[in-house]
Design a protein around this nucleic acid. Structure first.
Lengths: 249, 249
DNA sequence: CGCGATCTTGAGGCAATTCAAAACTAGTGG
DNA sequence: CCACTAGTTTTGAATTGCCTCAAGATCGCG
């Protein structure tokens, strides 16, 4: 068995809590919406956003809090999660720069889930009212937001489908492919999932236990489908994983 | 044991495949969006919709078909579902008059799921392009659509949460409460879920088998929490069900 | 009244969980 | 540079909740 080197995941060591003005504009411009807005309008929109920094483990907001702002992640990694009465956690989404989250509906509603920083992050926040005002002024933008929401809803339905019908291996395979699509970078070990990712996180995303996640991952590695270590996973044979999802899902 | 009468569910025996012009306007007006639109504009919007009728068991569209239209259910009951490679079905949503479904994102994408009529239904269909044109002309409406989508996304996240963490009983209890909230009418048997609803449907919504659904339902009845028969369920003690969801979820 | 579909019930099996302990890894400070 | 430590990962054995398979009971309809 070849000796495995330590984590190939490159952690961003940028100044924690702040992002440059240039980055702000770049992030906003790169959003699925705001693509068609004129430069001067974007500058005005940018002015409505407030910058907020968080350290790993810190919560941007908790479920139940009055949902007053919409966030855009500018730098780092975060996650959306829910807590079970039994203390278990369910991870609903992993957020990367460019992802938006928080209060999506009208003002006054509570946040349905919690958001936690996984690395040092910089988030841009806008009040729901301001955001809706912007959408009113840029109707084309609203349609793009709608598309983004439709895509999310579909992803959620994918998850429901898998949780309802698929066994542990297929669920893990699916999440690995999904993460690779979002965070995958080519690497000598394979398609590396570029974020610290432990067995526990995997378990929380697939509705299984840490132990089962470990067993499944070990099996995948024995099969030669993945390469893995502490807090990282790289995919060697995506076709095999896709096949598994197709058959068992 | 009190003798149980036959199904208290009132099935709508209207003319299957058509709905009156008056009903069309009433349905459109009652949508979560189109609330603020002027009467004459609504008439114009109405003109863009086409009417389509379907019989029980018929599919409005299949997953994978090119998603060209958005539908609004005007009369009857339908469901959104996905098929598993193993032949199992996963019911994602139960649709009632006023619900919209179909192509939510941009044109060109395939339908992510299938829609099936459960009773004789009348659906109003609009092309995606026309719908987006309408939203462009009525920016306030787009925001309301956004709200509706946000609510759906949240409901999907609820489902993920439950499927990930809760045992069979809690899942069933949750779906019963959800259905009662949407379709519940007071009745001498309790809060009746006003739609034909079998054990199999329950199973497909909660990711369990028909047999397990039956066992759980039987237990709930023994506990005095529900009243049930062939293809119908009425809730007697919603508080107990909510408690169960809170503890086990 | 009898047929088809739905619902119930039981027994055995299996996948995943729980409980528990050992092996490993990446930092830490001596 | 190495031993130490805290957190992560692996592995094992026992348990269990749900599924599978298989009848039988019940209901509604023609």
């Amino acid at each position: 068995m070849a000796k495995r080197r330590k984590s190939p995941v490159e952690i961003e060591t940028t100044e924690p809590h702040m992002c440059s003005p240039a980055l702000r504009l770049k992030i906003l411009r790169g959003l699925p919406f705001f693509r068609t807005v004129a430069d001067e309008d974007l500058a005005a929109i940018n002015a409505r956003f407030r910058e907020q920094g968080f350290s790993p483990g810190e919560f941007i907001y908790h479920s139940g809090d009055p949902g007053e702002r919409l966030y855009v992640l500018a730098e780092g990694r975060a996650r959306l999660l829910r807590l079970t009465s039994g203390g278990k956690q369910v991870m609903l989404d992993l957020l990367i720069p460019g992802d938006f989250f928080g209060a999506l509906g009208q003002a006054g509603t509570a946040y349905p889930d919690s958001a936690e920083a996984l690395t040092p992050i910089c988030a841009l926040a806008i009040s729901v009212d301001d955001f809706r005002e912007v959408l009113r002024q840029h109707p084309a933008t609203a349609l793009d937001v709608l598309d983004a929401m439709a895509a999310r809803l579909q992803a959620a339905h994918d998850a429901i489908h898998l949780l309802s019908a698929a066994p542990a291996e297929a669920r893990v395979a699916h999440i690995l492919l999904k993460l690779a699509g979002k965070l995958g970078v080519q690497d000598e070990a394979g398609l590396l999932i570029q974020t610290p990712l432990g067995r526990e996180a995997l378990a929380e995303m697939t509705g299984i236990t840490t132990e089962t996640a470990s067993r499944v991952i070990s099996q995948f590695q024995r099969d030669g489908w993945i390469e893995t270590g502490r807090q990282w996973i790289a995919l060697r044979d995506t076709a095999a994983l896709e096949e598994l999802v197709a058959v068992e899902g």
